[in-house]
């Protein structure tokens, strides 16, 4: 039994530790102070009293308890399944509108295939659309078109043009330029280069973004119902206003089940589309990329 001689480590012996970078401490304190000021300002503005704070969880729990057992049969009689599907239809049509509008526009916004004079305004256009929440679009559209699922689909479609346009643009920018050169060398025009050189490369990825957006739009269309654009949201608001909590529970459960099913199916399809396509990438890294494109967050 020979044990290797242990190296002597004294407590507090940080001999070759690098020195702490200077200048971080004041900056940290400044950030902390800023943070605390922001929080205190927010709390003071929301008139949160101790009394309300204490009673709120109890009230919320009471409502939650009223929802059980959920009144499934009554809700089915009122046609909640049709309403849930109406939300799905709205989301689908909205996604289709956005897909048809954003695909050609994305070609006009990509750095590698579009000239400067059209690219810059197109990008700003996408950014501008993305900045307006779809509910706000819907509020304006409802004023123009009247109440109904039609306006909801249009609002979702218009809003999604922004995100889908941005994602598609970035996909086109990452495409291999070899096929474009090949088409141009054969004397093809710009449009043929796009059709035969770029589109086959990027379409699988862009379609997977469409599906990704469809998942988001399902939630958006459920919400749009709350302000009168049809779908499951209107049913929820109605039952809540009647204080018919078992029915509310049933509506919520139907919504959650449908959302989860569609999320699961859609992400499975997305995985297949991407892995069957030219870009063989791990699904998780695709998700990370999609997130990065949406938000600018880099995941290592």
């Amino acid at each position: 039994m020979t044990s290797p001689a242990p190296t002597e480590i004294q407590p507090g012996d940080g001999g070759d530790r690098p020195p702490k970078p200077s200048g971080t401490v004041p900056r940290r304190i400044a950030l902390l102070v800023l943070f605390i000021v922001a929080v205190v300002w927010s709390i003071s503005g929301l008139d949160i009293s101790m009394e309300r704070l204490r009673s709120a969880p109890g009230d919320a729990w009471k409502i939650f308890r009223f929802m059980f057992p959920p009144d499934f049969s009554g809700e089915i009689e009122r046609g909640v399944i049709g309403k849930v599907f109406e939300s799905v239809y709205i989301a689908w049509i909205g996604t289709m509108i956005a897909a048809t509008i954003s695909l050609p526009l994305a070609f006009l916004a990509a750095t590698n295939v579009a000239p400067m004079w059209i690219r810059v305004p197109m990008r700003q256009f996408f950014n501008a659309i993305r900045a307006v929440p779809e509910l706000i679009v819907a509020v304006v559209l409802l004023a123009v078109t009247g109440l109904g699922p039609w306006a909801g689909a249009l609002a979702i479609g218009l809003h999604s043009v922004g995100t889908l346009g941005k994602l598609s643009t970035e996909t086109i920018e990452s495409a291999d330029t070899g096929p474009i050169e090949a088409v141009e060398a054969c004397g093809g025009r710009w449009i043929s280069a796009m059709r035969w050189g770029v589109l086959p490369q990027v379409l699988p990825i862009i379609i997977s973004y469409w599906l990704f957006r469809f998942e988001i739009n399902i939630r958006a269309s459920a919400v749009l119902g709350m302000i009168g654009a049809g779908g499951v949201g209107s049913e929820l608001v109605q039952q809540l206003n009647f204080r018919n909590f078992p029915a509310v529970g049933a509506v919520l459960i139907f919504t959650v089940v449908v959302v989860l099913i569609i999320d699961t199916v859609s992400s499975a399809v997305r995985r297949r589309i991407i892995q069957g396509g030219s870009h063989k990438a791990e699904d998780s890294s695709r998700d990370a990329e999609a997130l990065n494109d949406l938000t600018g967050i880099q995941i290592r």
């Binding site: 929301l46 709120a56 919320a60 509910l135 929820l236 959650v256």
Partner: peptide, 29 residues
Amino acid sequence: MNVVRAVPDLFWAKLLVVAIGIGAFAGAW
């Protein structure tokens, strides 16, 4: 957490408005 995430944010807002009253407090919750 998956179930909580499947319920859209405005559904939460509406539910809490009904439960603990109209206003910013319910929204913050």
